[in-house]
C-alpha cells in the first residue's frame, strides 16, 4: 500500500520548469530514495511535500489526505517529519530540552497554553524524551547545549527529535551532506537500526550513492525535474539512462 502519492506535480519558477509532471508513489514501511544530479528538482519536490512550496498543478496525497495548501506544522501533525540538509535544532537549548519539544508537540498538538506548570513536572514528557535519548545513545549529552555538539551529533539529535514524534513518514534531505566518511557510516547504521526497530516509512533525498545503495529498497531517479526511472537498486546501477543523466552524454 502506498502512503505517499504524488501525481502530475508541476512547479515553475519564472522561466524555469523545476518540476515537470512528477509522479511518485512511496510504499508504506519501505525506504525510498530520490536521487538525481544537481538541479534535478529533488529539493523542490521535497519542499512541495512539506508545505514550504505549493505546486502549480498536481496532487500530493498522504495516507489518503491532500497535503496541498496546508502549513508545515499541520503537515507535521499529520505524521510527516522532516530532517534538513544542515541540522536544524534549537541551538540555545540543551539536548534534553530539544528532545522535549517534539514530545510536547506529539502530546499537546500545535498549541497548548501551559504557562503555569514547570517543564520538569511533566513526567510523561520527561520519560518519553529520556527514552528517545537512550535510543539515540545520547543520554550522556542531555545537559549539553545543542549548539556545542559536533555536526554528527547534531544530525543524530535532529533525527531523534523527528522520531520522538513517532511519524509515519520520515523525510531526509541529504542527511550525510558534508559529513566525513565515519560520520556518514554512523548515520547509515543509525537509519538501518531505525528501520529495523520501527514501523516507519523513510523517503531519502541523497547525492551519495554509497548511502543510497546501502539503504534504499526503491529508487527514483530525477533529472531536469522529471522522473527518469523508478526501480529496485540492482536495476538502477546498470541503467544506461541513469549513467547518462549523471555523467552527461554517453560515449559511443
Amino acid at each position: 500500500m502506498s502512503i505517499l502519492e504524488v501525481k502530475g506535480v508541476n512547479k515553475r519558477f519564472g522561466g524555469l520548469q523545476a518540476l515537470g509532471d512528477v509522479n511518485l508513489s512511496v510504499q508504506e514501511n519501505s525506504v525510498h530514495a530520490i536521487i538525481g544530479p544537481n538541479g534535478a528538482g529533488k529539493s523542490t519536490l521535497l519542499n512541495c511535500l512539506v508545505g514550504k512550496l505549493i505546486p502549480d498543478t498536481g496532487s500530493v496525497m498522504f495516507d489518503g489526505q491532500s497535503v496541498l495548501g496546508r502549513t508545515p506544522y499541520e503537515i507535521n501533525q499529520m505524521g510527516i517529519s522532516r530532517v534538513f540538509q544542515t541540522p536544524e535544532i534549537f541551538g540555545d537549548l540543551t539536548v534534553m530540552e530539544n528532545m522535549m519539544i517534539p514530545c510536547f508537540a506529539k502530546r499537546d498538538g500545535a498549541f497548548e497554553m501551559n504557562a503555569w506548570g514547570s517543564v520538569l513536572g511533566q513526567k510523561d514528557i520527561v520519560a518519553h524524551a529520556e527514552h528517545v535519548l537512550e535510543d539515540m545513545n545520547m543520554a550522556d549529552k542531555r545537559q549539553m547545549m545543542a549548539s556545542s555538539m559536533s555536526r554528527g551529533d547534531k544530525r543524530r539529535l535532529e533525527i531523534g527529535m523527528c522520531l520522538a514524534q513517532e511519524p509515519r513518514l520520515l523525510l531526509l534531505d541529504e542527511p550525510t551532506a558534508g559529513m566525513a566518511r565515519a560520520d556518514t557510516n554512523n548515520t547509515i547504521d543509525l537509519l538501518k537500526e531505525i528501520k529495523d526497530k520501527r514501523d516507519i516509512t523513510i523517503a531519502i533525498i541523497e547525492h551519495d550513492m554509497h548511502v543510497v545503495f546501502s539503504l534504499a529498497e526503491r529508487i527514483t531517479v530525477l533529472a531536469q525535474g522529471t522522473p527518469l526511472v523508478e526501480d529496485v537498486p540492482e536495476n538502477i546501477k546498470g541503467n544506461p539512462k541513469v549513467r547518462e543523466a549523471y555523467l552527461g552524454e554517453a560515449q559511443v
Binding site: T71, Y73, S81, L93, I101
Partner: peptide, 14 residues
C-alpha cells in the same frame, strides 16, 4: 521561537 523558528514549525507547533 528565539532559537529556531523553522524547526519549531517543522516540529508541528504553530
Amino acid at each position: 521561537v528565539k532559537s529556531n523558528q523553522q524547526r519549531l514549525n517543522y516540529t508541528g507547533l504553530n
